[in-house]
Lab assay of single mutants.
Amino acid sequence: MLEGKVKWFNSEKGFGFIEVEGQDDVFVHFSAIQGEGFKTLEEGQAVSAEIVEGNRGPQAANVTKEA
C-alpha cells in the first residue's frame, strides 16, 4: 500500500490522478475506489492505494479515503 493525495479527479468522466511523493502520478479510475454509493475523490484528499500494472501503465487499485 502507498499513501498519496488526489491531484485531480473528474467525477463526470470517472477518473483522475493521485500524487505520490517520489514517484510519477498514478492513474485512478472510479471502479478502484472502495466504498458504497457514488464513487468520487476530492482534489487534495489523502488516500491509500495499491499500484497494479494496467493496460496503459501503473494504476491505482483498492483506493481508500483516509480520515
Results as ranks from 00 to 15, higher is better:
26 V>G: 01
20 V>M: 10
29 H>W: 04
45 Q>F: 05
37 G>R: 01
18 I>E: 00
33 I>L: 07
7 K>D: 06
12 E>S: 14
13 K>A: 08
63 V>W: 00
40 T>G: 06
58 P>A: 08
58 P>N: 08
60 A>W: 02
31 S>Q: 07
20 V>P: 01
23 Q>A: 11
33 I>N: 01
37 G>W: 06
39 K>G: 04
55 N>V: 14
49 A>S: 07
67 A>V: 12
51 I>S: 03
23 Q>C: 12
12 E>L: 13
12 E>F: 12
59 Q>M: 12
52 V>N: 06
38 F>P: 09
22 G>Y: 06
45 Q>I: 09
58 P>I: 10
38 F>V: 06
61 A>V: 13
8 W>S: 00
50 E>T: 14
18 I>R: 00
59 Q>H: 10
55 N>L: 14
59 Q>T: 08
58 P>F: 10
47 V>Y: 01
57 G>F: 05
59 Q>E: 11
41 L>G: 02
11 S>V: 12
45 Q>K: 07
30 F>G: 04
51 I>W: 07
15 F>E: 03
22 G>C: 09
14 G>T: 03
33 I>V: 09
51 I>Q: 04
4 G>E: 03
40 T>C: 12
37 G>V: 05
43 E>N: 13
62 N>L: 10
10 N>R: 03
36 E>A: 12
62 N>C: 12
9 F>W: 15
54 G>D: 06
60 A>C: 07
64 T>G: 07
11 S>D: 07
59 Q>G: 01
4 G>Y: 06
27 F>G: 00
57 G>N: 04
47 V>H: 04
46 A>V: 14
19 E>M: 13
48 S>L: 15
13 K>Q: 08
66 E>N: 14
8 W>C: 09
42 E>V: 14
20 V>F: 15
41 L>H: 03
14 G>Q: 02
11 S>K: 15
53 E>D: 10
13 K>C: 10
50 E>F: 14
2 L>K: 11
45 Q>C: 09
26 V>K: 03
36 E>D: 12
56 R>E: 06
31 S>A: 06
43 E>R: 15
3 E>I: 15
63 V>K: 00
64 T>Y: 13
30 F>T: 04
53 E>Y: 15
58 P>W: 11
62 N>A: 09
36 E>T: 12
55 N>G: 10
34 Q>D: 08
12 E>V: 13
45 Q>M: 11
29 H>G: 03
58 P>M: 10
13 K>M: 10
66 E>K: 15
22 G>F: 07
12 E>A: 12
26 V>A: 04
33 I>Y: 03
18 I>M: 04
54 G>A: 06
64 T>A: 09
21 E>M: 11
14 G>R: 00
66 E>V: 15
30 F>S: 05
8 W>K: 00
1 M>D: 07
3 E>T: 15
22 G>W: 05
17 F>T: 03
15 F>W: 14
11 S>G: 09
7 K>S: 05
53 E>V: 14
51 I>P: 00
38 F>T: 06
27 F>Y: 07
60 A>Y: 02
2 L>F: 15
17 F>M: 08
7 K>I: 08
26 V>P: 00
22 G>D: 07
49 A>K: 00
26 V>C: 06
59 Q>F: 13
31 S>W: 08
51 I>L: 10
31 S>K: 07
10 N>P: 00
55 N>K: 15
50 E>L: 14
61 A>P: 03
9 F>H: 02
20 V>W: 08
44 G>K: 05
53 E>S: 12
61 A>Y: 10
61 A>C: 12
44 G>P: 01
19 E>Q: 12
54 G>C: 10
27 F>T: 01
20 V>K: 05
31 S>N: 07
46 A>F: 14
19 E>L: 11
56 R>I: 08
2 L>P: 02
41 L>F: 04
10 N>I: 06
67 A>N: 13
18 I>A: 01
12 E>D: 11
44 G>H: 06
25 D>P: 08
15 F>T: 01
3 E>C: 15
65 K>A: 10
62 N>R: 11
34 Q>I: 14
35 G>M: 13
62 N>P: 01
56 R>C: 13
40 T>I: 08
67 A>F: 12
64 T>C: 11
42 E>G: 09
48 S>Y: 14
66 E>Y: 15
58 P>T: 09
9 F>G: 01
55 N>D: 12
56 R>H: 10
11 S>F: 10
50 E>W: 13
65 K>D: 05
20 V>N: 03
20 V>Y: 06
2 L>Y: 12
58 P>D: 05
52 V>P: 02
9 F>Q: 01
67 A>L: 12
44 G>T: 04
60 A>Q: 01
44 G>C: 08
61 A>S: 11
38 F>W: 13
40 T>D: 07
51 I>A: 03
25 D>E: 05
54 G>L: 07
32 A>K: 04
41 L>D: 02
40 T>F: 11
26 V>E: 00
5 K>G: 04
11 S>N: 10
57 G>I: 03
12 E>Q: 14
57 G>A: 04
45 Q>A: 09
5 K>N: 08
16 G>A: 02
16 G>H: 01
27 F>K: 01
10 N>D: 11
9 F>R: 00
39 K>A: 06
66 E>L: 15
64 T>M: 13
27 F>V: 02
67 A>R: 09
62 N>I: 10
51 I>N: 02
57 G>D: 02
26 V>H: 01
66 E>Q: 15
16 G>E: 00
17 F>A: 01
17 F>S: 01
3 E>N: 15
42 E>H: 14
56 R>D: 07
32 A>I: 04
25 D>Y: 07
27 F>L: 03
60 A>T: 03
14 G>W: 04
64 T>E: 08
16 G>R: 00
36 E>S: 13
48 S>R: 15
32 A>S: 09
62 N>V: 10
54 G>K: 06
43 E>S: 14
1 M>F: 13
46 A>W: 15
40 T>P: 02
16 G>L: 03
3 E>W: 15
28 V>P: 01
63 V>Q: 01
10 N>F: 06
65 K>H: 08
31 S>H: 07
67 A>Q: 12
53 E>L: 14
43 E>T: 14
54 G>I: 03
17 F>D: 00
62 N>K: 12
60 A>R: 01
36 E>M: 11
47 V>E: 03
54 G>E: 05
27 F>D: 01
15 F>V: 06
52 V>H: 08
15 F>L: 04
23 Q>F: 15
67 A>T: 13
58 P>R: 13
66 E>M: 15
6 V>K: 01
21 E>A: 12
45 Q>E: 11
23 Q>R: 15
2 L>A: 09
30 F>Q: 04
18 I>G: 00
18 I>V: 04
22 G>I: 03
8 W>A: 00
1 M>R: 15
2 L>V: 15
30 F>W: 15
5 K>Y: 13
8 W>E: 05
53 E>P: 12
48 S>D: 04
64 T>Q: 13
26 V>Q: 01
65 K>W: 10
16 G>Y: 04
35 G>H: 07
20 V>D: 01
2 L>Q: 09
58 P>Y: 10
29 H>E: 03
35 G>T: 09
38 F>H: 07
45 Q>G: 06
61 A>Q: 11
19 E>G: 09
46 A>L: 14
62 N>M: 10
29 H>Y: 05
43 E>Q: 15
34 Q>E: 10
44 G>M: 03
11 S>E: 09
18 I>Y: 01
38 F>N: 06
41 L>S: 01
40 T>V: 08
42 E>F: 14
5 K>C: 11
31 S>V: 05
36 E>C: 13
52 V>L: 08
50 E>V: 14
19 E>R: 12
12 E>H: 13
34 Q>Y: 09
50 E>C: 13
23 Q>P: 03
48 S>I: 13
64 T>D: 06
44 G>A: 04
57 G>M: 06
19 E>W: 10
19 E>D: 06
63 V>L: 07
63 V>I: 06
59 Q>S: 07
66 E>R: 15
41 L>I: 04
43 E>D: 09
34 Q>W: 10
42 E>K: 14
33 I>W: 03
20 V>Q: 03
12 E>R: 12
19 E>S: 13
34 Q>A: 11
26 V>R: 00
30 F>M: 05
22 G>V: 02
37 G>L: 04
19 E>N: 07
50 E>Y: 14
60 A>V: 05
19 E>A: 14
13 K>W: 10
12 E>T: 13
64 T>H: 13
17 F>R: 02
35 G>P: 02
40 T>S: 10
34 Q>N: 13
5 K>S: 08
13 K>G: 05
67 A>G: 12
31 S>R: 07
28 V>A: 02
42 E>C: 15
41 L>M: 05
52 V>F: 09
29 H>S: 02
61 A>K: 10
1 M>C: 13
2 L>T: 10
33 I>M: 03
64 T>V: 15
40 T>A: 07
43 E>M: 14
50 E>R: 10
30 F>L: 05
9 F>N: 01
8 W>I: 00
52 V>G: 05
46 A>D: 07
54 G>Y: 06
16 G>N: 01
23 Q>V: 09
49 A>D: 02
52 V>T: 09
28 V>W: 02
52 V>I: 11
48 S>T: 14
9 F>A: 01
12 E>N: 12
22 G>Q: 04
5 K>M: 09
1 M>Q: 11
62 N>D: 05
51 I>F: 07
49 A>Y: 15
50 E>G: 08
39 K>W: 05
49 A>N: 02
18 I>L: 10
47 V>D: 00
32 A>V: 08
18 I>T: 00
48 S>Q: 13
12 E>M: 12
56 R>A: 08
36 E>G: 10
4 G>A: 05
21 E>N: 11
5 K>P: 04
21 E>T: 11
58 P>E: 05
